[in-house]
Simulated assay, not measured.
Amino acid sequence: MKGKTIKEINLGDKASFEKTIGESDVYLFAGITGDLNPAHINQKEAEQGMFKERIAHGILVSGFISTVLGMYLPGPGTIYMGQELKFLAPVKIGDTIKAEAEVIEIVEEKNRIRLKTQCINQHGKVVIDGVATVMPPK
Rank of each mutant, 00 (worst) to 15 (best):
A56M: 04
H57E: 02
G58E: 07
G58P: 02
L60W: 00
V61G: 03
V61F: 08
V61H: 02
S62F: 12
G63N: 03
G63K: 00
G63P: 04
S66M: 04
S66P: 03
S66H: 05
S66K: 04
T67E: 12
T67R: 15
L69H: 07
L69M: 13
Y72P: 01
L73W: 03
P74N: 13
P74S: 13
G75K: 06
G75P: 09
P76W: 09
P76A: 09
G77A: 04
I79W: 06
Y80K: 07
Q83F: 11
Q83P: 07
Q83L: 15
E84L: 10
E84Y: 10
L85H: 07
L85N: 12
L88P: 02
P90G: 10
K92W: 11
G94Q: 02
G94S: 01
D95W: 06
T96Q: 02
T96G: 02
K98A: 05
K98V: 14
A99H: 11
A99W: 11
A99L: 13
A99F: 14
A101W: 04
A101C: 09
E102P: 01
E105H: 12
E105F: 06
V107T: 15
V107Q: 14
V107R: 15
V107A: 10
R112F: 07
I113D: 10
I113N: 10
R114H: 14
R114I: 05
L115E: 14
L115I: 06
K116M: 08
T117A: 05
Q118K: 15
I120W: 00
I120K: 01
